[in-house]
């Protein structure tokens, strides 16, 4: 265990993250990059971007609460130190996505009310399932919920968003690329550290699998709400703006309707869950479709 954890040290984190892929960035993107003029001037697209970014802030706030809360229940010093780096990663994500809201025109005084107005209730319930485990100082369930389920979901969502924005909004795409690199490290820790703990505590499998099932249900419900609520596709069509033909897992996102995009994202995340849970000795539990 000690050998694998040395790859997750603060020293390695300093070299790879702040002194690596974040070097010369400002709030996660290149200095001087701005949101697109279309986003700033079109009220429907701007509101859609705000709604989407609010979900990112809500998710990252949950991740910050979970990773900091797990430090005190970690069974060894090296895991505590890794979670310290993850805590700062999550705080950075909260900060950069909050900053995006400001860039989209949300006033600082309106931040909390904007979050309250647009936060998806199913995403809040998803976070609630995880934070209940963290509050009970349940390290194994907390790390599976945080570093496999939440981070696994975030990883695929960010990758899809990155694909959609890479050619049309480099500022947001760059912001996402740094977070994707962070999430990859977090998922790696979860898989590596938890596998041995599950082996040592086989009696825990049942309740952790149930947690995964509950979280997956709320995640799918969040996706369903998000793709149903979006007006961006219709608005782009109305103003005659061609959609970006970005590719995600072999599909052309610019040629899909919102239901097809929702199904593709859900299938991608659930497939990842199955693979990652299998690696740590847990059996994926299919949730009901909301």
């Amino acid at each position: 265990m000690a050998d694998f954890l040395s790859a997750y040290s603060v020293q390695k984190w300093l070299e790879s993250c702040p002194q690596g892929y974040l070097e010369d960035t400002v709030y996660g993107h290149k200095p001087g990059e701005q949101e697109t003029e279309l986003l700033k001037s079109n009220q429907i697209l701007r509101e859609d971007a705000i709604r989407t970014t609010v979900q990112l802030v809500v998710g990252e706030r949950a991740a910050l609460a979970a990773s900091s809360g797990l430090i005190n229940s970690a069974p060894d010093e090296a895991s505590k130190r890794f979670l310290a780096t993850q805590t700062l990663d999550e705080a950075r994500h909260v900060e950069i996505f909050t900053h995006r809201l400001y860039d989209l025109g949300v006033a600082k005084d309106d931040l909390e009310s904007t979050l309250k107005q647009y936060a998806n209730p199913n995403l809040v319930k998803f976070a609630g399932v995880l934070l209940e485990k963290v509050d009970k100082k349940d390290f194994i369930a907390g790390v599976v919920g945080q570093n496999i389920v939440l981070e696994g979901m975030a990883f695929s969502v960010f990758e899809m968003m990155y694909a959609m924005n890479e050619n049309i909004n480099p500022k947001f795409a760059h912001t996402l690329s740094g977070t994707i690199a962070d999430e990859r490290r977090h998922v790696g820790f979860g898989e590596n550290r938890i596998g041995s703990l599950i082996k040592e505590n086989p009696g825990r499998k049942g309740d952790i699998e149930k947690m995964q099932k509950d979280m997956s249900y709320f995640m799918l419900a969040t996706f369903a709400d998000a793709f149903r609520d979006t007006q961006a596709v219709d608005e782009l069509e109305r103003i005659g703006q061609e959609r970006s033909h970005a590719r995600f897992h072999g599909a052309d996102l610019g040629a899909m309707d919102t239901k097809e995009m929702e199904d593709l994202l859900a299938a991608t995340v659930l497939k990842e869950f199955k693979t990652r849970l299998g690696r740590i000795g847990l059996e994926y539990q299919s949730p009901q479709r909301p």
């Binding site: 900091s68 310290a84 909260v94």
Partner: peptide
């Protein structure tokens, strides 16, 4: 302390402190 910090700025600062202490 992050869990009981009264605002986002204090939470973000304490996160930087967490990684300092871990270091």
């Amino acid at each position: 302390l992050i869990a009981i910090a009264p605002n986002r700025l204090a939470k973000v600062f304490l996160s930087t402190q967490v990684v300092d202490e871990g270091r």
